[in-house]
């Protein structure tokens, strides 16, 4: 049995059905890649798995237990979603990187953050930067490490390398590799040709359904 299991999951918004009867089993430690045309429902699928929205019908389970039987914040800490075009919140980079500590009620650990920043090629002085002063690629990298301060069991990546220059992209891809080696289960959505070519386990999505 997989770490994440979707059984006959559908999602409708009003009378528009966005996800149609999806069955999916993701094995622990797997690195699953999902691709498909724009608007086919990839982001919606990840948000369902992250419990940011709930299926209209069908069930999603995590470690054999129904999503709804978990405490929702605890669940989202373990099944962590990184948005397509993420935005940073509040004022500074520090605000963003200290939230994971606040959420868990533990004191801010500067060494840990320093190491993470280093992984995405950013200096520790970045903590004091105002978020409006960051470039797009820098924002994307800061957003991604927010999800990794406390490594989740499952990481959901929604086109996190889109719009990055070659250098930022290489850095982020290396980080993702690194995360995979730490036994985190990964589900990524991508349009990127090289990422699709390198995918160990690829699923195509069409109009709200997964292709077999």
């Amino acid at each position: 049995m997989g770490i994440i299991e979707l059984q006959n999951v559908s999602y409708a918004d009003g009378d528009q059905t966005i996800i149609h009867h999806v069955d999916l089993s993701v094995t622990a430690g797997d690195f699953l890649t999902i691709s498909g045309p724009s608007g086919c429902g990839k982001s919606t699928l990840l948000k369902l798995i992250a419990s940011l929205i709930s299926p209209t019908s069908g069930t999603i389970s995590f470690n054999g237990k129904n999503q709804n039987d978990y405490d929702y914040p605890t669940y989202r800490q373990q099944v962590s979603y990184c948005f397509q075009q993420p935005t940073l919140f509040d004022t500074s980079v520090l605000d963003n990187l200290s939230l994971p500590f606040q959420i868990r009620g533990v004191p801010f650990d500067e060494n840990k953050i320093s190491a993470l920043l280093q992984l995405v090629d950013l200096p520790l002085t970045f903590l004091d930067k105002k978020i409006i002063d960051l470039s797009g690629g820098e924002k994307q990298r800061v957003a991604l490490i927010r999800n990794l301060v406390f490594p989740p069991q499952v990481l959901l990546l929604d086109e996190v390398t889109v719009g990055l220059d070659t250098r930022s992209k290489t850095i982020v891809q290396a980080l993702i590799k690194n995360v995979q080696h730490q036994a985190t289960t990964l589900i990524q959505v991508t349009h990127d040709e090289t990422e699709i070519a390198a995918a160990a386990h690829l699923i195509e999505m069409r109009q709200g359904a997964l292709q077999k």
Partner: peptide, 22 residues
């Protein structure tokens, strides 16, 4: 206006109060 910010905080596992406190 801050919808996206709240969503990001929820996605990181913040309870609703922490997500909305600012």
């Amino acid at each position: 206006d801050q919808r996206q910010q709240i969503l990001e905080k929820l996605a990181l596992g913040a309870p609703i109060k922490l997500a909305a406190i600012t």
